[in-house]
Nucleic acid binder design. Structure first.
Length: 426
RNA sequence: GGAGGUGUCGCCUAGUCCGGUCUAUGGCGCCCGCCUGCUAAGCGGGUUUGGGGCUUAAACCCCAUCGCGAGUUCAAAUCUCGCCACCUCCGCCA
């Protein structure tokens, strides 16, 4: 959630942020009114409670009539206190409910607009000219079948649409990518993590996925647990309700976990192959750092993402997303879009968000300084989303005969092999 | 899944049976000061967290906080109920 102090002292900033997100500006006025009401109720309660406590303390010392009189008076007060307390609770809850709807304050310089209003910051590498090479590129699904790497038919048979098996070389490729990603992360000072993929509602809510994003999340009714859509969720909740030693920051974690997404409302979108699926595995970077270092850290996360994509020799662009496309938690977001030859356009492969103190406030993650404790900043970034990365590798490095050249960085993790090669169908 | 036990302000701990100066005890650690040639020891004071008030600021004041929540009561760490986590044993299982 946003800082309540900012709401009180600079409501215009919150209004501007809401406008940049394309969200309700009136909400800010409702919030201010609710805050006022809540604080009034709290102070009325505290006054009454203090009076009640004071009288109550005299009872053990008194005796006889005096005692009876005191008890009668305190009894009346107790009734008032109960009512005042209920009122304060009610108004407090109303305020919180409103506050939770407000997205993070959009960072300065974020482009205005919605999904299509991103700004291309950089372009790296050259898309291959397949015409010049004399063949038509096959798409990842066809290549996956030729290589015996991806089986969507059996995925659908076993689990339904938007499920797949990675088979043979496909499964090996994921493991190689995992090892490359993790070893890169470890070299950069990250701590390797394998987090739970099922989490409690508090973890989901704290990371901001139970708002507008809720329809895209799997929920296990029976156990009231959620399947995470990203390791960001357990990695953020990992330090919830903790006070971190300021000297230990930044804490950098690289988590490998499955990601589950209902993909509600994406019917008919990217239905071919494994571009948009209900489950994929992912190595996610997650950082806790001092708020004043967050912007710089965000650049580092982006740099590590680029380093990884560079190593895979995939042409790509770096986009800065517009305010309307940030999600609830992010103050700023960069996506890397890799070149997809059969679609002749760039498609998302990684995403990194600076959530400033937004998630830390919800999850109660603080660090200690001379001035007491204060929320830390959290950031996340994709290091390697397996299915999308596999798609990019297959399509960009395919050869005329259906084999796929392996980028040099990946070879050590595939027994020195230089290419994935067609296998007989079975 | 079944039975039993435990949960107190960083860590350990007193208090819970029998509700009221508990405004939560003591130790360790940590911080400040004194003392000291230095260090150690010693002495004195401070040290949960969150919210609010008053201040230039600090000091100070108020409310909440004894795993979480609800209830009983004028009054709950203490009594009742529900939940959670951990430990021990049994059952089941990769």
């Amino acid at each position: 959630m946003i800082d309540v102090q900012v709401l009180r002292t600079d409501p215009d900033r919150v209004r501007a942020s809401q406008a940049a997100r394309g969200e309700s500006v009136e909400l800010v006025d409702q919030l201010l009114a609710a805050d006022e009401a809540r604080r009034g109720a709290i102070s009325r309660f505290e006054q009454l409670r203090a009076e009640q406590k004071d009288l109550g303390r005299q009872i053990p010392k008194a005796s006889g009539d005096e005692r009876a009189a005191l008890m009668a008076r305190t009894k009346d007060l107790a009734d008032l206190v109960k009512k005042a307390s209920a009122m304060a609770d009610e108004l407090g809850t109303a305020f919180s409910r409103l506050l939770e709807q407000v997205g993070n304050l959009v960072a300065d310089g974020v482009p205005e607009g919605g999904e299509d209003d991103y700004v291309v910051l950089e372009t790296h590498g050259e898309p291959r000219d397949f015409a010049a090479e004399g063949f038509e590129p096959k798409d990842h699904l066809e290549l996956g079948q030729i290589l015996g790497a991806i089986d969507v038919e059996r995925g659908a048979k076993v689990s339904g649409s938007r499920f797949y098996f990675l088979t043979g070389q496909g499964a090996e490729l994921e493991l190689a990518l995992l090892n490359l990603a993790m070893s890169t992360a470890l070299r950069n000072g990250f701590t390797a993590m394998i987090p739970p993929a099922l989490v409690k509602p508090s973890a989901m809510a704290g990371t901001g996925f139970l708002g507008q994003a809720a329809q895209d999340v799997y929920h296990l009714e029976e156990d009231d647990l959620y399947l995470v859509g990203t390791a960001e969720v357990p990695l953020a909740a990992y330090h919830s309700d903790e006070v971190l030693d300021a000297a230990s920051l930044p804490l950098r974690y690289a988590g490998y976990s499955p990601s589950y997404r209902r993909e509600a409302g994406s019917y008919g979108k990217d239905t071919r192959g494994i571009f948009r699926v209900h489950w994929f595995d992912k190595v996610e970077m997650f950082v806790y750092c001092a708020p004043e270092d967050a912007a710089e850290e965000h650049q580092r996360l982006l740099a590590w993402e680029k380093e990884f994509i560079d190593a895979l020799e995939i042409p790509y662009q770096v986009l800065e997303l517009a305010g309307g496309d940030l999600g609830l938690s992010a103050a700023r977001k960069y996506d890397c879009y890799g070149w997809l030859p059969t679609q002749t356009r760039y498609r998302e492969i990684t995403s990194t968000s600076n959530c400033t103190e937004f998630q830390a406030r919800r999850l109660n993650i603080r660090s200690r300084s001379e001035r007491g404790t204060s929320p830390v900043a959290t950031l996340n970034g994709t290091l390697c989303a397996m299915t999308r990365t596999i798609i990019m590798i297959l399509e960009n490095h395919q050869q005329a005969d259906g084999s796929v050249r392996l980028p040099a960085a990946l070879r050590p993790f595939l027994g020195g092999r230089e290419a994935l090669v067609p296998v007989p169908k079975r």
